[in-house]
């Protein structure tokens, strides 16, 4: 009897904590969404009311019609995806080679790359600008893809190396015995077995690239090349923040992320944790 009641109390306590946690995490987004539906004159003076007296889609209309939000969104997707593809192409063969082919000097390279994961992005901003300019890449998406590689490459390398490390070397040796070249073993054994881990690495790299503000703000000048993060920040112009338009734009930015997460969360999350848990 006492046990059961304890159990019930514990359950209630856990759920109260859960509700507080969800409010803490989710309410700012809810409030953002509510604000985006309020008429301008109610945003500052509407108080704490959760349901505005009037609903309007005017702010959404404005940001799409006048604010190029669709373009920003497409650019963000393009840049983040390309960053992932580039990092992937560059990183996986190297990670495989260092993990499984026992190259001399590979430990040194891995250590060096590891060290560069600590590299402050702001430190690379100035030389990258000068370098990109030399190749006429300022104000192109290439500038972003290359600069995002500065943080995705060390990360992806270390994570995918840990996935290749996780594959028993006997499997590769067996493949060699069967007459596979090292490349054949990479493609037939390494990639398929590391695939779940590599997907996870890609998702993580995608998020890092999707979230960047600093490089995008510094390297992109043209409106039609802007990503969402800089696009939204630019909406705060010298005549003051129009919170209605800003929250509408923020909602549009958040919604796809939310949808993708609700659909694929189990897979994504399990992957995200792999790197740290493995360590």
């Amino acid at each position: 009897m006492v046990r059961a009641s304890n159990e019930t109390w514990e359950k209630i306590g856990v759920y109260i904590c859960l509700i507080i946690l969800l409010l803490f995490v989710g309410f700012p987004f809810v409030w953002m969404f509510i604000t985006s539906l309020k008429p301008s004159n109610e945003i500052l003076t509407g108080g704490l009311r959760l349901i505005p007296s009037h609903f309007t889609l005017q702010h959404y209309y404005d940001v799409f019609k006048y604010g190029n939000l669709g373009t920003y969104f497409r650019n963000s997707v393009v840049v983040a995806l390309s960053t992932v593809v580039l990092s992937f192409l560059a990183v996986t063969p190297g990670a495989y080679a260092i993990s499984q082919l026992k190259l001399r000097g590979s430990a040194g390279l891995a250590r060096l790359i590891l060290l560069f994961q600590m590299m402050p992005g702001v430190l690379l901003l100035i030389p990258l600008y000068i370098l990109l300019k030399q190749y006429n890449l300022i104000n192109t998406h290439w500038a972003l893809i290359l600069s995002y590689s500065t943080f995705t490459i060390p990360f992806c390398f270390l994570l995918s190396k840990s996935y290749f490390d996780g594959i028993p070397s006997e499997l590769f040796e067996a493949a060699f015995v069967d007459g596979c070249t090292t490349f054949g073993a990479f493609v037939r054994v390494g990639l398929p077995l590391a695939a779940p881990g590599l997907m996870v690495t890609s998702v993580y790299a995608f998020i890092l690239a999707w979230n960047d503000f600093m490089f995008a703000n510094t390297f992109i000048n043209s409106d039609h090349l802007r990503t969402l993060t800089t696009g939204i920040v630019t909406m705060q112009n010298s005549w003051g923040v129009q919170w209605g338009a800003m929250t509408a734009a923020a909602t549009v930015t958040t919604l796809p992320v939310l949808i993708v997460f609700l659909i694929a969360n189990k897979y994504i999350i399990e992957g995200l944790t792999a790197g740290a848990v493995k360590g």
Partner: peptide, 11 residues
């Protein structure tokens, strides 16, 4: 719970 971490810092 993961949402704040995934949404861009700008937002």
């Amino acid at each position: 719970v993961l949402l704040p971490w995934v949404v861009p810092i700008a937002v």
